[in-house]
Simulated assay, not measured.
Amino acid sequence: MKLHLIAAATLAAAATLPAHALLVNDAAAIAGPTMMVDFEAFDGLLGSGPVTVAPGVVFSGDSGAELGANNRDLGDNGLWGAIGNFAAGGVGGELRFTFSDGLSSGAGAFVSHYANAALPFALAVEVSAYGDNGLIIETHSFTVGATAEDYNAGQFLGITRAQADIRSISFKGVGVVADNLVLTTPVPEPGTWALMLAGLVAVGFLGVRQRMG
């Protein structure tokens, strides 16, 4: 069973974020309509991508990334491996999901990362939202607090925005892993709406001509 672990200090920090954006720790906080992407269709696909993992969702990652991983030793954060297939980063640790069909107002995934208490610093996972220009519009760092005896422990981490301006979301960290990506269904861009409207007008015009003929 996937455990949801979160430090009280991080919750307090999230509560102080600007009203237009929020780091969320529950998939239910991603406003609907939503879509969920798992990685059961992949079985150990290695590479940095791009790979379409669901309609309108394109994966890219570091050179050691794997889609459909089925086990990972996360050191002091325990083991992942009994939860089905998931996405895993290499040592460089980046998993990015780009929404090719439009912009989203919220996205997140169940994540964890490698940890080692012997290090003089704490390792963390960084979740970032990117805008249509490819620049970061929100970024937050989070340390998952599991133990070496835990199995499939982690935390849902996501970003919600007041407007649909997220082109992609990424999870970065040493040995980062992610599963069950949830996102608000992307909003078609203005250009797409214009094409749809033009198509409807054209269909209507043809219908009128046929009736007149």
Rank of each mutant, 00 (worst) to 15 (best):
I30K: 07
P33C: 08
T34H: 13
M35P: 06
M36N: 14
M36Y: 08
V37F: 15
D38F: 08
D38V: 06
F39Q: 00
F39N: 00
E40D: 10
E40G: 14
E40H: 14
A41D: 11
D43G: 07
D43M: 07
D43A: 13
D43N: 11
G44L: 09
L46K: 14
G47C: 06
S48D: 11
P50K: 07
P50Y: 06
P50V: 14
T52Y: 10
T52N: 08
A54E: 02
P55L: 07
P55H: 06
P55M: 07
G56Y: 10
V57Q: 09
V58T: 15
V58F: 13
S60T: 13
S60F: 01
S60L: 02
G61E: 00
G61D: 03
G61N: 02
G61C: 06
G61L: 02
S63W: 09
S63H: 11
G64H: 04
G64L: 07
E66M: 14
L67Q: 02
G68P: 04
A69S: 14
N70H: 09
R72H: 06
R72F: 01
R72Y: 04
R72N: 05
D73N: 13
L74M: 04
L74W: 02
G75E: 13
G75S: 10
D76E: 07
D76S: 03
N77W: 03
N77S: 05
L79D: 14
L79S: 14
W80K: 03
G81R: 09
G81K: 07
A82M: 08
A82T: 10
I83S: 08
G84W: 08
G84R: 10
N85D: 12
F86W: 00
F86E: 00
A87Q: 04
A88C: 04
A88P: 04
G89L: 01
G89F: 00
G89N: 05
G89Y: 01
G90D: 02
G90T: 02
G90H: 00
